[in-house]
Design a protein around this nucleic acid. Structure first.
Lengths: 157, 157
DNA sequence: CGCAATTCAGTTGTGCGCAATTGAATGACG
DNA sequence: CGTCATTCAATTGCGCACAACTGAATTGCG
């Protein structure tokens, strides 16, 4: 087949499933979910709950608002999630004294102790990917750039 | 700081949120979701529904099982999703005559017509990423490789 | 043929993820 | 000081995603 300049690759060509990055991205995200699910089962955490604990281990204590900013999640997701973590005895929530609209979240002792057990997770995840650290870092950088671009583009809606 | 061979980077170092590829991946996936949400609103489709239609546009008709294999989704996700697509008049479901356990799904005329309107979506998505086609293709290949590795690693659970 | 294992779609229950709304608390402004 | 807009967390409603289960249909095997 020679090139057909009058009918360059039509839009429909790009509708093929195997051409959609979003699909590959979505599939990779869910594949990660599966691996995390098995790894985190011992800790009694889901993957999003694990992300919340990561932030709390770093920051110690912070309002729900900041937590949402760091994780790109809103209160509709975080409120019930934090209640479950509180019910599990891993975090504590309390209204800020300075600003009673705000709720501060911090890990309990049990939540803090969980960190040492969680410390093994990243290495096992990295091993499951089959990528070396440089590859992972490169991919992460590309994905962050992608997210920034997409978030920027979403503003034009 | 010189190299400290006795205490190489501890596991805890990798617990930092900004070190987790999974988080970048998850964030990128949801950022895509946001862009698709606005783009697909005109078509009356959600993003997963759009993926289903992509497969149906390619294959014309196929059983739920095959649909799930191509999209990496199970019946728990697809059954209600397909019901909604059927209620919207975009697909038709019917029991296979050869094997009554199987249900074949195919686009209705309205579903097929939607394809021409959807043809504009991929280009607009590509534009939103700010990546050129080669970059997208490269990223897609890496992600697919990642998914394969993760799916393979999940089997050891 | 007859029975057991397998293969299907569908259902149920739990947990995100997000839009939209609610209602309390705060801050700005006259 | 009062009013009004803003800023919070929480709630509601809907749609995935996945595990576990159900029940019908089919296949395999003796």
């Amino acid at each position: 087949m020679t090139t057909t300049p009058t009918t360059t690759p039509p839009d429909e060509e790009f509708l093929r499933l195997d051409r959609q990055i979003c699909f590959s991205l979505n599939a990779a995200s869910r594949a990660f979910g599966g691996v995390y699910r098995t790894l985190l089962k011992d800790l009694g955490l889901t993957y999003p709950q694990y992300l919340v604990m990561l932030v709390l281990w770093e920051d110690g204590e912070l309002p729900v608002k900041r937590l949402g900013e760091r994780l790109r999640l809103d209160s509709g997701t975080l409120s019930p999630l934090l209640k479950r973590l509180e019910a599990a005895g891993l975090v504590q929530r309390e209204r800020s004294a300075r600003d009673e609209r705000s709720v501060n979240v911090r890990p309990t002792d049990a939540g803090t102790e969980l960190r040492t057990r969680a410390a093994l997770v990243p290495r096992r995840i990295a091993a499951a990917t089959g990528f070396d650290l440089a590859e992972i870092e490169d991919l992460r950088a590309r994905l962050d750039r992608l997210t920034s671009a997409l978030d920027g583009a979403a503003l034009d809606a």
